[in-house]
Structures are given as structure tokens and as C-alpha cells.
């Protein structure tokens, strides 16, 4: 079957989230009008403190929200020009969006190889192509090949690599990565981010990267959004964010104590023309 004609105008983003509102358990309002865009082939990062609603945003896109009794109650999410809000996760994986959840979530009582084969669950292109891709993943993450035991015994860094490798096995157009640096040593964080950058470059996969480690994330990203309390507070191209005084102070600064944007007069001024 030939690829369908390009559904997307060249300037239209691959994914666009338009003013969505997300509610858990019918009552807990968590996202209050979030909008963001991810252009094809780019790395976009979504930054913000714990509890801001970053993971919720990713789950809204991947449809996993429904597994936690959450729902997109307003706004729209379009992928390749088609509405995907509140569709079921299987459907969304088949459309080419794959979420690597927070905490890696590999299947602990399976081997690396079995985890990788699971990643290819939705594929229909046969054993040879899948074996080929397993080799490709092992090329990116050679140390996974040596691990033959249960994946639950892998180190945190190896589990993260396996989680990313498993995502690649689905041959997705877009990967949603939720806090890949969590719990990893600085050295490993560097390694994992290096690979993320490489993936985007080699395979043309579009990435939406959620991070608390803003410094690392802005290094690999082309564009960034900063989120707090269920709202996007600031957005901009990588250089703009890195050079922004507030971002510098509160997200990149060396001081341990991170204050909120909300208490900031200069931020409120800026908000008007956001």
C-alpha cells in the first residue's frame, strides 16, 4: 500500500494540542487550557515543577488518561491533522505516537529481548523486519544485548535504555518521553540524552520530552514550553529560553531553591503578551 498523500500542509505541526482541559475522576481539574505544538522532526521539551501537569499532558495525547479515569473535557488534540483526543491508546499507538511513561515501566518479569518484541506488538510487517530493528536497538544500546536475565534486575539507566529501545521497536512517528533522567546519575543522564538527540537525527523521530532537568532538556530541544499548575507559563525557542532571565534564575540557576513564576512581577508583565 502506498503512503497516503501528505495529510499535512508543510507548515502545519505534526502534533498540536489546542487549549485542552483535563479532568480526573470527573471532578479534579488538572489542565486548564494547555496548548502546544510539535513540528515534525523536532525535539520539543515541556518543563515544569512536580505536579504541574506534564505527565497528564502526555497521557492526554497518548490516550492513557482513560486508564486513570481522566478525560479531555475541552479543546482538541490533532495528530497529522486528525483529531485524537480521548481515542483509546491502542488506536493512538497504531497512528504512530508512543509514550515512554515516567519510571520506565518495562515489564520486569521479561527479558530485554521479550520487552523489545513487545514494543513491536502493533506492527504487521513480519519477523524479519522486527529482528532487523532489534539489531538496530542493540546497536544504539550495546549493553542491553549482554543482559539475558529478567529486565527487573537491570540498573535504572539500562531500564531507561530498554524503555526507549522498546519504543523504537514500534517504529513510531513520535515519542512522548516522560522524565528519562529521573533517578539517573549525571553521567548516565548525559548518555541517555546523547542517544535521544541521535535518534531524532538518525531516524527522524519527533520527540516531545518532559523533564525536570531543564538544563539537559534545553540542550537537546529545539523549542520549549514551561508549565506550572496546569497552564503553560512561557514558551520559546531553545536560545530564547536559555537566555531568559527568569528561566535562568528558576530553572537553570545553581541555587537549589526554586521559586514559582507566579510570585514574579516581571513574569506577570510578560504574560500579557504571551
Amino acid at each position: 500500500m502506498a503512503e497516503p498523500a501528505l495529510k499535512l500542509a508543510p507548515e502545519e505541526p505534526l502534533l498540536s494540542v489546542n487549549n485542552i482541559e483535563v479532568v480526573y475522576d470527573d471532578v479534579i481539574l488538572v489542565l486548564r487550557g494547555v496548548s502546544l505544538e510539535v513540528p515534525k522532526g523536532k525535539v520539543v521539551t515541556l518543563l515544569g515543577p512536580n505536579g504541574a501537569g506534564k505527565s497528564t499532558t502526555l497521557k492526554a495525547i497518548s490516550g492513557l488518561l482513560a486508564t486513570e479515569d481522566g478525560e479531555v473535557t475541552r479543546g482538541s488534540i490533532t495528530f497529522e491533522g486528525e483529531e485524537i483526543a480521548n481515542k483509546n491508546p491502542e488506536d493512538i499507538v497504531r497512528r504512530g505516537i508512543f509514550q515512554v511513561m515516567e519510571g520506565r515501566r518495562i515489564v520486569e518479569d521479561m527479558t530485554c529481548l521479550e520487552n523489545l518484541r513487545l514494543g513491536a506488538f502493533t506492527r504487521r510487517d513480519g519477523g524479519a523486519a522486527i529482528r532487523n530493528d532489534i539489531d538496530m536497538v542493540y546497536n544504539y544500546f550495546p549493553r542491553l544485548k549482554e543482559r539475558t536475565g529478567m529486565a527487573g534486575y537491570l540498573s535504572g539507566g539500562e531500564q531507561q535504555m530498554l524503555a526507549i529501545g522498546r519504543a523504537l521497536m514500534a517504529r513510531p512517528k513520535m515519542i512522548l518521553l516522560d522524565e528519562p533522567s529521573m533517578g539517573l546519575s549525571p553521567l548516565l543522564v548525559k548518555e541517555v540524552f546523547g542517544i535521544i538527540e541521535q535518534l531524532c537525527h538518525d531516524l527522524g523521530i519527533t520527540i516531545l520530552l518532559v523533564e525536570q532537568n531543564a538544563r539537559m532538556a534545553l540542550k537537546v530541544a529545539d523549542f520549549g514550553y514551561i508549565m506550572e499548575s496546569g497552564k503553560i507559563m512561557l514558551d520559546g525557542a531553545k536560545e530564547d529560553l536559555i537566555n531568559n532571565e527568569d528561566v535562568k534564575e528558576f530553572y537553570l540557576g545553581g541555587d537549589k531553591e526554586r521559586k514559582s513564576f507566579k510570585n514574579l512581577k516581571s513574569y506577570k508583565r510578560r504574560k500579557r503578551w504571551l
Binding site: 486508564t67 491508546p89 497504531r94 509514550q99 511513561m101 520486569e108 518479569d109
Partner: peptide, 17 residues
Amino acid sequence: LAMRATAFNQQVAQSLG
């Protein structure tokens, strides 16, 4: 494999399609 993944964790299984 899909059945084992589901047995391990249903949300994880769903995230894999």
C-alpha cells in the same frame, strides 16, 4: 507476550498498543 505484559501491568500493556 501481550498476555504476560497485561498480567504484569494493564496500563503498561495499553501503552504498548
